[in-house]
Design a protein around this nucleic acid. Structure first.
Length: 575
DNA sequence: GCCGTTTTCGGCCCGACTGTTTTCAGTCG
């Protein structure tokens, strides 16, 4: 690899290696070890390539001497010798076949050894020619399944995920309706929606009820529910009109806590939780905690964690990123809450591409209980919506001053979201920027620069003492656009040096910084700003998704700059 | 292959579902 590979690229290579080992029949624990390492590499907030060069790769959980050496080899030579060797024996086409649901490593191996399948094309021909029937264990159903998967295309296994905002809107509405049902005892949203992940594969609802049949009937009748594929006393499976699968589980009230804990996940969190429990002689499942043949059930989640010797863990932290150890030691952070926010420092008005006036936005912010709102319309070279040329920005400053005279306690800050040009300059003169209360800078053009160029570009903007915060620092759109090539370690370093703040943009499509990067930035001492980037009064409420990301990033109120009064916040800046 | 509130060696989460091997291995979440 000639340039520095990203964590995701390194992780992909180890995922592939894990599958190759799996196809080769290696012991499952070795395979699991590679998958665990791949996940740690993918989720590292700092560059694993850089860590490896510093000889620090083994600091990653699940990365030991062997895998650290393989990372190093990958960086030096562009490939992992063990993978090259395996590929001589195992066609890489088999790796693709394992992505077909129902076809795991054992059965794919069998296809290879029995009838010489080496690729998806081979598999298609074999089914068409009826040769699958020669393979023991492959009946009519298996052939049907393979044909269906092939018909859906290579990406069949990668179903589109639903953005958290959409999943939550549906899930919360359903839960609210179900709670209103007379037989409802407890109803909670579980799964990735409860953990506030970026996106959700499905919705999980856990309920305790006095009349399961009536409750399931009510579930079938929910406005959001389209098709119900299975229903019984234990729950139901359905799909919403948007095609989002919903899983309802009905459980006895006395073990509601066990089930809620189990179905909230994540899988990794539960796995780590159970591994640790086994060492204390406890066996955890969704039905209870078994100890010496006795199964203890828990009505609430707190009791589950308490029995395992730790404090209750907020769902946003349940990703096996150190939360279990912290909970055992009583070291969990006091996560930032939406009520901690005292201001919003990124919003738009009709001056650029917003839908409301300064006054309307200010009133809406005041109604949300905020003390200050920065109006930060797009700058002169924005390229879509209305431009705000320097003269117009000066008029906006006057407008803001007038609104402040007529308004109650909320303070409107005159600001801008100025463009970071390809050379790192911003597109207003310093004289004008100096007249503003608050300057947001961000990238909206020339996304396809090389990583060093993009990093240099953003660092250069941070060097300008009048730039207070970098908005949506990676430019990602969840599920639609990858982050632009950028070295976040370099950006964080520059932020520390220049006292520039970094934003968690709360737009549910962005949530940028991500939880991973926000955690890394805060660890490095960078203060984080959580902004709505509202383009209308109603989207000021989007800060909830920014708070969700911040909580997933382990941030406390102190880590978040806009939990402070405006006077305290302005003192944090690099000006 | 990794790791240490039983361990530097010997373990490594738990249960449901599926298809088809009539007793369970493989796969999945």
């Amino acid at each position: 690899m000639s340039r520095t590979p990203k964590n995701a690229e390194i992780a992909d290579r180890f995922e592939e290696l894990a599958t190759l080992y799996e196809l080769d029949g290696a012991v499952v624990y070795r395979v699991v070890a590679y998958r665990t390492a791949a996940k740690a590499i993918r989720e590292s907030g700092v560059s694993v390539a850089e860590m490896s060069r510093q000889g620090r790769a083994e600091e990653l959980p699940g990365v030991g001497k062997t895998i650290a050496e393989k990372v190093s080899a990958l960086l030096d030579t562009g490939s992992i010798p063990a993978a090259d060797k395996l590929k001589l024996r195992i066609p890489v086409g088999l790796v693709e076949i394992t992505r077909i649901p129902g076809l795991g490593p054992k059965r794919v191996r069998q296809l290879h050894s029995e009838i010489g399948i080496e690729s998806l094309d081979d598999l298609r021909r074999a089914v068409e020619e009826g040769r699958l029937e020669d393979v023991p264990g492959f009946g009519a159903k298996a052939q049907e399944n393979v044909l269906a998967a092939l018909a859906e295309g290579a990406d069949a296994a990668q179903r589109p995920r639903t953005l958290l905002s959409k999943a939550l809107a549906l899930g919360e509405e359903m839960v609210e309706c179900l709670r209103a049902h007379p037989s409802a005892v407890r109803v909670e949203l579980a799964g990735s929606a409860r953990r506030r992940a970026d996106s959700c594969k499905d919705l999980d609802i856990v309920a305790a009820t006095e009349d399961a049949d009536a409750f399931v009937s009510a579930f079938r009748e929910l406005a959001a529910v389209d098709e119900v594929s299975a229903a019984g006393k234990a729950g139901a499976k359905a799909t919403t009109h948007q095609g989002l699968p919903v899983d309802l589980r009905i459980v006895p009230a006395e073990s509601f806590g066990n089930l809620l804990q189990h179905f909230t996940g994540s899988g990794r969190h539960n796995e780590a939780l159970r591994t640790a429990a086994v060492k204390r002689g406890l066996h955890v499942s969704e039905y209870g905690i078994a100890e010496d043949g006795t199964v203890h059930t828990c009505a609430g989640e707190e009791a589950v964690y308490a029995r395992l010797g730790m404090s209750w863990i907020p769902p946003e932290l349940r990703e096996d990123r150190g939360e279990l150890e912290a909970a055992r030691k009583g070291d969990l952070p006091a996560l930032v809450r939406i009520d901690d926010l005292r201001g919003d420092l990124h919003s738009h008005t009709v001056a650029s591409d917003g839908r409301n006036t300064v006054t309307e936005m200010a009133r809406a912010a005041a109604e949300r209980g905020l003390e200050y709102l920065a109006v930060t319309d797009h700058s002169a070279t924005h390229g879509f919506g209305n431009h705000v040329p320097p003269d117009e920005l000066r008029r906006q400053i006057e407008r803001v001053a007038k609104v402040n005279e007529s308004l109650g306690s909320l303070r409107v800050l005159a600001g801008t979201e100025t463009n970071i040009l390809p050379d790192g300059a911003v597109d207003y003169d310093d004289d004008l920027l100096a007249e503003l209360d608050w300057v947001v800078a961000s990238v909206h053009t020339s996304f396809r620069m090389s990583e060093p160029e993009m990093t240099k570009r953003i660092a250069a903007a941070m060097e300008n003492p009048l730039v207070d915060v970098i908005a949506h620092p990676t430019g990602r759109l969840i599920g639609r656009r990858d982050p632009y090539a950028i070295d976040m370690d370099g950006v964080i370093e520059a932020a520390v040096r220049t006292h520039t703040l970094l934003e968690i943009n709360a737009n549910p499509n962005r949530r940028d910084l991500s939880d991973i990067y926000a955690r890394e930035a805060a660890r490095a001492g960078v203060k984080i700003v959580i902004d709505s980037d509202a383009h209308g009064a109603e989207t000021l409420a989007n800060v909830r998704y920014g708070i969700a990301t911040a909580r997933r990033a382990w941030l406390t109120a102190d880590d978040v700059a806009n939990t402070r009064s405006w006077e305290d916040l302005r003192a944090l800046r690099g000006r």
